[in-house]
């Protein structure tokens, strides 16, 4: 249990106070994963750092080429944001599938990435949108592709005290669709999630990115499948070939939610549905 809890309102304040705080510390944003662990007795750090009200992490802004999404912006806000709707349609489409509306009032994209769940819906949508993550450690910033931060189930590649400041999404007109196969609608962890972002004109695929969740150790980019579809016309034959490929590309497991074979089969089915919606 935390012996110390500190709240911060700016990154400057955080970096200034950090050296004086206990070394065994966790960063607390939405809390929808961390506090579940705390309530179950799994997470037991000496110090919690509440970063949920840090100004820099709570912005959505744009410039000519990119949209910046602060890591601490609540998902419910993203689901109402006109910039997200216009430039990050995958994320906009994903938000209603993300847990319940009360949890969306709390959960953040930064937490979704840091938690590194194989079933992370928000990460799936960001990766399909070719987002980059902006990291910050004592004011030193670096950016990298979103999926490069994931190392395995619940394992991320963040350095100690490295903060996820936000996400950078290139402004490029495209269509997107997010589909999720789940037992209890609007709630819980999916059996399979798929997000497809594509630039398609008269059935010709100029560009496409297919990303899946819950079917690999991390959220997973189906590169072989995307390469089959790119620069092709969406004919029945090509869709069938892509659907067969995606079944071989994923590596699902059997668990309490679903069986391996069913998940594999549904990856193909969901891809076909997604392409039908998006074409």
């Amino acid at each position: 249990m935390p012996e110390v809890i500190e709240k911060f309102y700016s990154l400057k304040e955080l970096w200034k106070k950090l050296p004086k705080l206990p070394v065994d510390r966790k960063y607390l944003a939405g809390g929808t994963d961390l506090i579940v662990g705390y309530n179950l007795g799994i997470s037991s750090n000496e110090c919690y750092l509440d970063i949920s009200d840090i100004r820099e992490l709570n912005l959505v802004r744009e410039n000519k080429k990119q949209v910046f999404i602060g890591a601490g912006v609540k998902l419910a806000e993203l689901g109402k944001n006109s910039l997200i709707k216009r430039w990050v349609p995958a994320l906009y489409d994903c938000v209603p599938h993300f847990a319940s509306s009360s949890l969306r009032n709390m959960a953040t994209l930064g937490g979704n990435l840091a938690n590194a769940s194989p079933s992370a819906d928000g990460v799936c949508a960001l990766a399909a949108s070719r987002a980059w993550v902006l990291l910050n450690l004592y004011g030193k910033r670096e950016s990298k592709p979103v999926l490069s931060v994931l190392k395995g189930p619940k394992k991320n590649a963040l350095k100690k005290d490295q903060i996820i400041e936000g996400f950078i999404v290139p402004k490029k007109r495209h269509k997107a669709v997010f589909l999720k196969l789940i037992s209890r609608a609007k709630f819980g962890i999916g059996k399979v999630g798929i997000c497809v972002c594509a630039d398609i004109e008269k059935k010709f695929v100029k560009d496409i990115n297919v990303v899946l969740s819950s079917v690999a150790p991390t959220v997973f980019e189906a590169k072989k499948t995307s390469s089959i579809l790119k620069y092709s016309y969406l004919t029945a034959k090509i869709v069938e070939k892509a659907s067969e490929t995606i079944r071989t590309e994923v590596s699902p497991i059997s668990d309490i939610r679903s069986a391996q074979d069913y998940r594999r089969e549904m990856c193909g089915v969901l891809l076909e549905r997604a392409l039908r919606y998006i074409a």
Binding site: P2, G31, I35, V36, N39, S102, N105
Partner: peptide, 23 residues
């Protein structure tokens, strides 16, 4: 205690939040 039942909801600045999942 896991944010799945909604029995602990309160309004925080007008937004319904699961108070069991907030410090």
């Amino acid at each position: 205690g896991e944010g799945e039942c909604g029995a602990c909801l309160d309004l925080l600045d007008g937004r319904a939040v699961n108070s069991c999942l907030m410090m």
